[in-house]
Amino acid sequence: MKDAVKITVVLTFVCAFCAFLLSFVNGAVEERVKANQVAQLQDALNKLSPKAQSVEEVAIGEDLIYKLLDEQKKLIAYGFVALGQGYQDKIKMLVVSDKNLRQLEGIEVLESQETPGLGAKIKEADFLNQFTKKDISRPLECTKLDISKKSEIKAITSATISSRAVVNTLNKRIESMRKQVKSLN
């Protein structure tokens, strides 16, 4: 019986103490973690649309849309987050497009777990620059060969799946964005 008591007391106490320690540490850095995420989004927005003077957040359903405004508080661009399955895990991108959703300002990859040296190259300028000022009046296509049409994006060599994931996720989000913008206006 004494054994049973000792067992119970020790494990319970260890668990309780560890829980205390952890919640303490967590509380100490919670602010920082949130600030990091906000800062990352802010940086990405600034990078893609430097002309914008202010940002207005609009919630539509579960999504947050960012209205980018000039000095006169007129809408000049939309910023929105796209999330989709990549090769390893989900890819999270920030997309900035003109207010008519006809042309992209550009995209930034916020989070991805793609293979370093291969799929991870979707974060690099070489790949992302293809999306700068890209015409999105038609859905984009991902090709392994050199670009022959306006709506094509060239995939990264040996990282076709990751490249395709970016393009497909983008297309889907733009579609849903069009619907959401309609409901706004």
Partner: peptide, 15 residues
């Protein structure tokens, strides 16, 4: 517990 502390630390300071 210690691994969680490391995880929290990384997320906060070296995201």
């Amino acid at each position: 517990t210690f691994v969680t502390i490391v995880d929290i630390f990384f997320k906060a300071y070296i995201p």
